[in-house]
């Protein structure tokens, strides 16, 4: 069932994706722990023949119940023409719908609202988060619907799909393959994630991925890195 759905998703999104902007970001897991707080830093560096873009996000998040977490982001960007500056703010809510392992697969939802710093442009995202264990491997998939609106944006609905297939080798090193689709974009590449535990609930998670765009002949590479400190 899972691979049948996955196959259908890839076929559909490979031909008919709508999203624009940076598609490569993070594949979300559908889990929330109560009494958890976190600081997060993400870096995305995208290189094409035409431009270099560096985006960074810092965030603070806190679980507000057994299954809901709220996270606020500040997003900064640097392009070849502009220095690094604050670009947008975002608030994100993650909702763990099912208990891990209870059903055939684990489910969650994600809601995001993003506002551009210097313009009255808004982006609202709703997404489904999915994870399924296969022995020591885990398949994680995200399906997002994005609505953009504002003074310098044409109102439009977009869709994005993200996938990660991870081998839980060691806590600190878990190799994975990641796939991202968006408008005119199909990217795939290797990724790694890991977790280092400290005293009590404190732990540091890291993620690194190198995603190459497949559907175009031009150069389009994205390096992503994320650090998450939970306490």
């Amino acid at each position: 069932m899972c691979f049948r759905v996955l196959f259908i998703m890839i076929i559909i999104f490979s031909g008919h994706a709508f999203a624009d902007g940076i598609v490569v970001d993070k594949v979300y897991h559908p889990y929330v722990l109560p009494d958890e707080q976190e600081f997060e830093w993400r870096l995305i560096s995208r290189q094409t023949d035409d431009e270099n873009l560096l985006a960074q996000r810092i965030a603070y998040g806190q679980s507000v119940s057994d299954n809901v977490m709220i996270e606020g982001y500040l997003i900064g960007e640097k392009t070849a023409l502009e220095d690094f500056k604050l670009q947008a703010y975002e608030i994100e809510v993650r909702w763990m719908i099912t208990e891990q392992g209870e059903l055939w697969a684990d489910w969650g939802m994600l809601f995001e609202v993003e506002k551009q710093h210097n313009s009255n442009d808004w982006e609202v995202t709703t997404g489904i988060l999915f994870e399924k264990e296969f022995g020591r491997t885990s398949l994680t998939m995200n399906l997002f619907g994005v609505y953009e609106s504002g003074e310098s944006l044409q109102d439009e609905f977009e869709a994005e799909f993200r996938l990660k297939y991870r081998y839980r080798w060691l806590p600190q090193i878990q190799p994975a393959i990641e796939l991202y689709t968006g408008e005119d974009y199909i990217g795939i590449g290797p990724a790694f994630m890991g977790i280092q535990r400290f005293n009590g609930q404190k732990q540091l998670k890291w993620e690194l991925g190198f995603i190459a765009e497949l559907s175009q002949t031009d150069k389009d590479h994205t390096l992503r890195f994320a650090l998450e400190y939970e306490f």
Partner: peptide, 15 residues
Amino acid sequence: YINSLLILIVLWMPT
């Protein structure tokens, strides 16, 4: 396309 997505979401939903 959106209809196709909705069908897939229903297929995907928890059983």
